[in-house]
Amino acid sequence: MGTDDLDGDGIPDELWLARDADLRILGISTASGARFSISLNAFDAGALEQRVGDTATAISGRLGDGSAVVLVDLGRSAALYGVVNCYLVATTNAQGHPYLFDLGYDQTGNGVGCPVVGSRRVLAGYLADYDSKDETYRVTRTTIDLDAIHRRATAGRSTVLATSAPENSAVVRDATSVTCGDNEPVTEPAP
């Protein structure tokens, strides 16, 4: 599936997922003909959280600081990968573990996206807290900061986007999904 320019040459690239026996592979094919990939099994602790029958999807994009990211939706969590010098690398947190976004199962988050904040596209995690009394959501966006070489991520500034949003509102929909700009996700082939 076509996506943003991920290798920095100004031409859109292609993101893909594949299976080779028991290996699950995330890859990029660039417009110049380069191909690089990484095994989800070997580097992604989030893959261990998947339920039997879950199928991964992936989406990618280029952020306003020039970094290229890939988000792999594993069902219960979304793993963050960076594109660094035509390599895919599993981005880590401050403790050196894979950086995972909760998708509602640990109740620490509900989604991840690449919204435009100010004039730049950023990476952000979302939390949509449900208020059963009012039947609305309080939505918080936390920007994610990447280090200079795009290999380590840390939580940045949090902003409350809505305090009484209805379930069918755009802000709740965005906060409970895995997106990156206008790019479309790719789906892993069935085993």
Rank of each mutant, 00 (worst) to 15 (best):
A162C: 08
L146D: 03
G64K: 09
S177Y: 02
N110Q: 09
F36Y: 15
D20L: 13
P12T: 06
A56R: 14
I149P: 00
S29D: 15
R76F: 08
R120S: 13
G53S: 05
I144P: 09
G125Y: 05
H97E: 14
N183L: 02
P189K: 07
V172C: 00
L26H: 00
G118E: 10
V69W: 03
R138D: 03
L26K: 07
E188K: 08
V116T: 15
R62P: 01
G111N: 06
T179G: 00
G118V: 08
M1A: 13
S29M: 06
A47F: 11
L40D: 13
S39G: 12
L63K: 09
S119M: 07
Q50A: 08
G82K: 00
D106L: 13
G125K: 11
Y137N: 03
A190D: 13
R138I: 03
T92G: 01
P185W: 07
T57S: 15
A34G: 06
T91Y: 01
A68C: 06
T136V: 12
H97A: 13
V52R: 10
V171C: 11
L48G: 14
V69I: 15
G96T: 04
V139Y: 07
A128H: 02
L74H: 07
V89W: 02
L103V: 04
E49P: 00
A21G: 09
V72D: 10
G96N: 04
V52I: 11
A94T: 10
R62F: 02
P189Q: 08
N110D: 14
V117M: 12
R35V: 15
D9T: 04
S32E: 15
I59K: 10
S164F: 12
D134G: 00
G118C: 08
G111M: 09
P191S: 11
H97S: 13
L15M: 10
A148L: 12
R19Q: 14
G8L: 02
A58I: 02
S177E: 05
A170W: 08
C86Y: 11
D54R: 01
D13E: 11
